[in-house]
Design a protein around this nucleic acid. Structure first.
Lengths: 249, 249
DNA sequence: ACGCATGTTTGCTACTGGCGAACGATTGTG
DNA sequence: CACAATCGTTCGCCAGTAGCAAACATGCGT
């Protein structure tokens, strides 16, 4: 399946794009160096992408342009889960007082689809559209727990990279974590993906009990005591996830 | 400049993507037919893009996937104009009672960057992220009017394609339209881009009086009388554009 | 059972993606 | 002020691949 990408040029094209995305703008030499490509080659790609309206020059570096906005927003609005969740997410953020997110599962990847903050002082590091790891985040674990066994095993063989010192990297421990997620329909993230932040998540499953998305609330460790997290907010998250599932029927 | 795109494969890759985007999902044969490519070639592209997470199979057709969401949203949030406009746009939509939009100019293209509707019953056909034509929309004309002369002339030579029966296609008439836009800092769109819809727009310019964006309000012809459009709403649009310009300093 | 649509796979070849090297333009450093 | 070290860009060039035609597999409606 994942021999190699059939069309190499497209692959390098998106390698360049994501590198620019991560660096929030970059120049030719910079990109050629970090992607191990020739300057000339990178330059050709940048020219092509600029002409097509997917990159724009901002001073001396290339930046992601608005050409992607339409693609990204229609991809999201096609999602029924997203459509029915927006109002519920807002409520969840306000009653919990922290950051409420909707994440989705697509092709073995987790993506934060929508996010609402209770107030502007909270600057949660994950943003809408960001990829989230399936093993280190609450939403990721919630989704992974409700996926077919073979998919879980395949994920485990790829290895559980440590993202913070508290990330679960032991396979057996991780399997227990998923089992507990299935038992209680809730998972926690205790600084496993971002130091200083913890979360609670609950899965959103289809009629076959396969996860398609997850709801989560995240807050800074110093403002969110264990008790409040594990009791009050946990209840809110689970009931929001349930409500969303009902709206999908 | 626009000899040909240096990297053809990337060009066809995005031709395929936009075709899927326009059709809101498509299959291999369908795409090969309308883009005049071989089925095998299209298939390779689709496989590559799927593996990279930019397409997903939904039943029997390929759809734009969430991989683009991150790219699109960061492109937008990088825009200072967007950042400072959101609250003002909301106010504009509410006080006018119709649809308020912020459009931007990038590489000779217009794009609707943000949009707020006063109420949900309004279903304005242009959505966030959509390309808008520079000669048939109010926002497009507002921006074009405040661009360098050579750019305007270049645009005129490409031809003013009629989009609706009321689209201005005569070069001289169009030049007069732009002049009037410069005189009053306001332009109208009277069903020139969408039948049944009209708009008012005012440009947002930088210190050199070059347009970088435009603010507009759109409403259905049967609910928006000429008087209200040309007086009350026009004033609101112009003052909103001015406020945004001030916030940019 | 057949015909016709689809998606997928297989060689094959002309073309092109990506390389190294060289060229100006800028920068900043001694 | 000149030198060194960047940067982005352009130029040929060759191996490798993008894209083709055609065959194959599969599913649908008649």
């Amino acid at each position: 399946m994942s021999d190699e990408y059939p069309i190499k040029a497209v692959h390098t094209c998106f390698r360049i794009l994501t590198e620019i995305h991560n660096r929030e703008g970059a120049g030719v030499s910079e990109l050629a160096r970090s992607l191990d490509l020739s300057k000339a080659g990178v330059h050709k790609h940048l020219q092509t992408l600029s002409q097509l309206g997917y990159l724009s020059r901002d001073g001396d570096e290339y930046c992601i342009a608005l050409g992607f906005l339409g693609l990204g927003l229609t991809a999201r609005s096609r999602f029924r889960v997203y459509q029915v969740s927006t109002s519920l997410l807002r409520d969840l953020a306000e009653t919990s007082g922290y950051v409420a997110s909707l994440s989705s599962h697509q092709n073995g990847n987790g993506i934060c689809v929508a996010q609402t903050c209770a107030n502007d002082s909270l600057t949660y590091p994950t943003r809408e559209g960001d990829r989230i790891s399936l093993h280190a985040t609450a939403a990721g674990k919630a989704m992974l727990a409700y996926r077919p066994v073979e998919e879980i095993e395949r994920y485990l063989t790829d290895g559980l990279d440590p993202i913070t010192p508290k990330t679960i990297t032991n396979s057996d421990e991780f399997r227990r974590e998923l089992q507990s997620a299935r038992d209680r329909r809730v998972v926690f993230d205790r600084e496993e993906s971002r130091e200083g932040w913890q979360s609670v998540a609950s899965p959103i499953t289809d009629l076959d009990q396969v996860a398609i998305a997850a709801v989560s609330v995240s807050g800074p460790v110093d403002k969110l005591t264990g008790k409040r997290l594990e009791e009050d907010i946990t209840g809110l998250v689970v009931s929001t996830a349930k409500s969303i599932e009902n709206r999908l029927l």
